[in-house]
């Protein structure tokens, strides 16, 4: 029986396969699919946020939707517009949603993905289980809106997300103008799991964000160690005069 006959009888049909995740950094973060970015320890939320903003720059232009559970914003602060603009490389219009419950937040994320009106949804929730991430993955693949979940350090276990990153801050780069001042921010991003390339799981990326060239670069292993400023007499730091 020829293929044409099979098709005519409805036994064979062409389906659109879901586009596969790219297998190079950042593995589709902010471009397609659902990704999880978790803190390595309590208080690393700023590093995780910075990673999402800087690594997800290649995605579609348009409005970002920032969904946040109210408790998280109270505990870990909100993302000001100025910093968002600076780290995501230019003006990105943003809508914010604050919800009290995680279920409402996930519902809002799904609603936004299905509507297709936004270019990227970032959600800060306490937890997202397998069912929730699976729902989001299906919706995201169907409507082409990427979702990034910013999760607390306590999250683990199996989910349907394409990748899970674990973020910790690293001592910043040496400041060429002032050895005692912090330099460009550095993060350590560990790819905990990756559906597209399971063998890459566990890989560590030491990243540096250059806020002048607006680029995220890889730091080589040697330079990634703590940048030790010249110790001042007495072992403390030398303070600059105020003003």
């Amino acid at each position: 029986m020829s293929i044409a006959t099979l098709k005519a009888r409805g036994l064979l049909r062409t389906v659109q396969a879901a586009p596969s995740q790219p297998i190079a950094f950042p593995f589709g973060l902010g471009e397609r699919g659902v990704h999880e970015v978790a803190e390595a320890a309590y208080g690393d939320r700023a590093a995780a946020t910075g990673f999402v903003l800087t690594a997800a720059q290649r995605g579609r232009k348009g409005v970002w939707l920032w969904v946040c559970q109210a408790g998280i914003a109270r505990d870990l602060g909100h993302v000001p517009e100025a910093a968002l603009r600076e780290m995501s490389g230019g003006h990105r219009p943003r809508l914010s949603i604050h919800t009290r419950h995680g279920a409402d937040a996930l519902w809002a994320v799904e609603e936004a993905v299905v509507s297709g009106a936004v270019a990227h949804v970032v959600a800060e929730v306490e937890a997202a289980d397998f069912t929730a991430t699976r729902r989001l993955t299906l919706a995201s693949e169907k409507h082409g809106v990427p979702v990034t979940l910013l999760l607390p350090y306590a999250c683990d276990g199996a989910t349907a997300a394409a990748t899970r990153w674990r973020l910790a801050p690293r001592p910043s780069a040496p400041n060429p103008h002032d050895p005692h001042a912090p330099g460009y921010p550095r993060f350590r991003a560990v790819l905990e799991r990756c559906r597209a390339a399971p063998d890459l799981a566990g890989r560590t990326y030491d990243l540096e964000w250059n806020d002048e060239t607006l680029s995220l670069g890889l730091v080589s292993g040697m330079a990634a160690g703590p940048a030790a400023p010249r110790p001042a007499a007495g072992g403390g730091i030398v303070h600059r005069k105020a003003g």
Binding site: A46, G50, P80, A83, R85, E86, Y184, D211, E212
Partner: peptide, 20 residues
Amino acid sequence: PDSPTAPVSLPGLRPLRMFN
């Protein structure tokens, strides 16, 4: 909101997460 014309400060001087 309209896009602001000029940045408020030099890059790297404002925090990414601000407490209420």
